[in-house]
Nucleic acid binder design. Structure first.
Lengths: 184, 184
DNA sequence: TGGCTCATGTAATCTGTTACATGATTCT
DNA sequence: AGAATCATGTAACAGATTACATGAGCCA
């Protein structure tokens, strides 16, 4: 009860920025939001229909570039529901890293394989960093869109945290490699 | 299919360190592992029974301090299954922060409430930090338990990352407060 | 004696993903 | 021509939480 699903608010939030199709919403989730949220078509499309039934968004069927699309626009009611949620203090911040799980149990499998996991983790992070850095520098410019400031701050979170991840990876390598030498 | 449930391995991993009851497993999850994993009794107890049925753990019903307990011990088969999973490269690292979601849509609600969310986020982090720091310093000492090294490294992750969170919080406050002044 | 912690478990429910289904358009 | 992308959707399934249920021991 205290923990209602967030997908409704994610969609309302994205639609508060601009009118979008379900497909475009998925793209936003896979780019700007992928750092801290994700969702599949299997939850996006049914939720959009629910929101429409509840009068929180209105749909507009149209043809664009020879393609049938359904574009959704937030209503005043939808904006009110979104605001009410944004005001709520209860939040759940959850980190679920299988990499840390495997490290935690690393003594069972040894340093070599554990180091490989850490290495792969670092590579994934390094691959993500440029995208985040670009986002920050693009959104940092003072522009007309007030919302860019907020989006930039989430990307900044990514940059700072991911850089810390990389530092940590180095430390882990040092500790585990040093541990390996002791056995020689 | 590529994404099988992890709870089995979490329990096997914890039992690879020491024999435990379901209740004790929950306590481990709520302390040492809460940074990067969690689970409820509703998944722990049924999973323990499954693992026993599959011969990966063996149960021992006993009375301790006048209380009925069921203590589980990992079997050789269980250890093999755990190792096979630890060797696998596929990992899913997922961060799901409602705080970042609310920040992302912050333009809809404004700076004041958004700053409150950030403030509350920082407070939660500050509350967690001492526990993580204590863990690192306690586990850093070279001791007999090889596994402590690995556990320490996960706590070190927490310390470094949480300190970065706090730095980021300060930056967010600066940016949003500066933005507020512009309107005056 | 009353509340908290210890201790184990189940059933209903929720939330979401995966896999499937379909078909048009655009790019190479 | 074929592959990739655009575009929307459903049904089955998985994984897990929440609430409920029960009861003993410990502490104030």
């Amino acid at each position: 009860m205290a923990n209602e699903k967030k997908i409704n608010y994610v969609l309302l939030g994205l639609l508060s920025h601009e009118s979008l199709t379900g497909y475009e919403i998925k793209k936003r989730l896979d780019t700007r939001l992928r750092l801290f949220w994700n969702a599949s078509y299997g939850s996006i499309y049914p939720t959009l229909n629910e929101l429409e039934k509840d009068g929180l968004v209105k749909k507009e069927e149209l043809e664009e570039k020879g393609r049938d699309k359904i574009r959704y626009t937030i209503t005043e009611d939808g904006r009110e529901v979104l605001k009410a949620w944004l005001e709520k203090t209860a939040v759940k911040d959850e980190l679920r890293y299988e990499t840390l799980l495997k490290l935690f149990f690393g003594s069972e499998i040894g340093e070599d394989i554990t180091l490989e996991h850490i290495h792969r983790f670092g590579e994934k992070i390094e691959k993500e960093l440029p995208f985040l850095k670009t986002s920050v520098s693009q959104l940092k410019e003072p522009d007309l869109e007030e919302e860019h400031k907020y989006i930039m701050l989430t990307a900044l979170f990514g940059v700072k945290v991911y850089e810390t991840y990389l530092e940590w990876c180095k430390e882990v390598e040092e500790v585990l490699k040093a541990g390996g030498k002791k056995d020689v």
